[in-house]
Design a protein around this nucleic acid. Structure first.
Lengths: 343, 343
DNA sequence: CTGTTAGCGCTTTCAT
DNA sequence: ATGAAAGCGCTAACAG
């Protein structure tokens, strides 16, 4: 395997000159540069990453902290992982996955072995222990999702506004009795930002609209979903709409609704908050999608900018927090409630 | 940041001794080892990955080649990515994602910069250009999926047997007219191994069982799915069962079936091949699941073993090919066809 | 059982 | 506009 010395010898220049041609950190005459490029092409030379990062300060790698409860897989995580990897390449970075169950240990290991220049933390929770870790290590980091932490740049869908918006649109469509199906219990217990913000949005919307908005906790246990839905949907006065943030079991949920004899949307309008783009289950329903691509691009940008900022001025808190405004898919308005009292 | 020299100084030994303690490649007295460990703990020392891999031959990183058509996301890819990352850690490896649209360029770049010790290629196709690339570069590689290539270890669900099995079980349940919905056209055009093997399985099953098995190409275009299904399900004599390998649009597919006035399973038995574990859409149906965890573990094992084998004996072709036998989920037998001729 | 030392391949002063 | 040389942090001969 060719090294920089081989290239130098072949081009009749010094190794340092080859390096300068590669990094562009010094002006080189056209003649020399051409000779070097020719030698590089002839030898099929490619600089070795480990030598670069041993010498320099950078690895051009981002570490992606994927949340991982063993045996539990969330579709959204895989999707973000791949989109983030894509986005990172656009900045010249590769992405290393960190899926250790204890994210703190995993991050420590990778940071301290200098395998990456910055981290992206997925599915951030309030009082997330990974945040303490990167702050303590002084490691450049951007967050996907946000809790209440200071000092780190983040990007998130404005879940509070999203749920508020979904509820408001539902009320505007004429619904007076609305069920809000919150994120799964275990997500709330884990203090995931999006789950907590969604809850707040529902409560705010109830106050703002004056409508009857019943906030229902949800469950990750498939077998309990049926009972939960029956209780929610058969309560009196009967709800005519359901705003759903708990999307993991959506297909099952729709089955249960059908089993209760309710047609969607004639008897019950179902509005989704935070569905994944191109999800065929979500597609026919009115919804606010999770802007996966945009969030991935933004969080990578923030992480990459933190790399530079780490050795210089701290990141300004202003533009480093991206709360993305929710947007209803325009082709799916919330259908009106059934007209029970004709005339 | 502490280096091996700092540790050595603090422990009152030579740097090499610290190295030997760390790598275990030389016997060290208990006293010395304890002193070194104490110094390591006090300084919070962690070896730098770039220095290690510059010096040694290994990076302890696997590169994962994720197939990526820009704008198209397959849920199975994200799932495998995360499971593979998990499995790799069990062998002491980290996983670097490679999502470049041109997998060949991306692999070249990563291999030649020595960022990884071995590759895992996802969603292998027949005559996959990435295979030629890793062979030409002499890079240790394991494949997820298989085409017709020689010389590289792989693991795959036996899709041919899986479809054959699903069809046979369907026929055994009493069905005489069965529709097989193949993978999407574009997957077949891309010569993905699983799509082609599935097709062969369907044809074999038709021959073996003597039943009327109608192989239907499928489509990735959501808007054409309805027409396709109508044609397939309203043909005479009417099919009473459908074996589905095209799962991306499964929810949509079930909606279309319902729209045709067919109840599942009373009017039409639906059997899935290759569904993802814990998919709530698939769960109520008889199915053969894709063993994601097992495949991930196996492909990582093969990749890791190739690292050693690269500098030594070639990988024996025997145990290096893992064709996983299909298994029906035991709790979901194929329901019988409707009894149209009572008596 | 431990220390000394060369060098992996690169970048970047310092020197011309 | 280019070279020479030091050294990033580590491992593995070689030498006691």
């Amino acid at each position: 395997m060719a090294t920089i010395k081989d290239v130098a010898a072949r081009a009749g220049v010094a190794p340092s000159t080859v390096s300068y041609v590669l990094t562009g950190s010094r002006r080189i005459s056209d003649r020399t540069r051409d000779a070097v490029h020719a030698a590089i092409a002839e030898l099929g030379y490619h600089p070795r990453a480990s030598a670069r990062s041993l010498r320099g300060a950078r690895t051009d790698v981002l570490v992606l902290a994927v949340p991982r409860k063993p045996g539990r897989y969330r579709a959204v995580d895989g999707r973000f992982a791949i989109e983030i990897s894509d986005a990172a390449r656009a900045h010249g970075y590769d992405v290393l996955m960190m899926t250790e169950p204890d994210g703190v240990d995993g991050l420590r290991r990778i940071v301290r072995s200098k395998l990456a220049d910055a981290a992206v933390l997925m599915a951030v929770r309030e009082r997330d222990p990974r945040i303490e870790t990167v702050l303590e290590l002084g490691f450049p980091t951007a967050l996907l999702g946000h809790g209440d932490e200071p000092g780190l740049p983040w990007v998130d869908l404005d879940w509070e506004a999203a749920v508020r918006f979904a509820v408001r649109r539902t009320v505007e469509a004429g619904h007076r009795h609305v069920v809000f199906l919150a994120s799964a219990d275990h997500e709330i217990d884990a203090r995931r930002g999006y789950a907590l913000h969604g809850l707040r949005g529902a409560r705010d919307a109830a106050r703002e609209t004056g409508a009857d908005v019943r906030v229902h906790p949800s469950t990750g246990a498939e077998e309990r979903l049926g009972g939960l839905l029956r209780a929610a949907l058969t309560a009196r006065p009967a709800p005519t709409a359901m705003v759903v943030q708990h999307l993991v079991l959506l297909p099952r949920l729709l089955e249960e609704v059908a089993a209760l004899g309710l047609r969607v949307p004639e008897d019950l309008a179902v509005v989704l908050v935070g569905s994944l783009p191109d999800d065929p289950v979500a597609e026919p329903l009115p919804r606010i999608e999770l802007p996966v691509c945009r969030m991935s691009r933004e969080v990578v940008r923030l992480a990459v900018e933190s790399v530079g900022a780490a050795s210089g001025a701290p990141v300004g808190p202003g533009h480093a927090r991206q709360l993305i405004a929710p947007r209803m898919e325009p082709d799916r308005p919330v259908p009106p409630p059934p007209t029970r009292r004709p005339g």
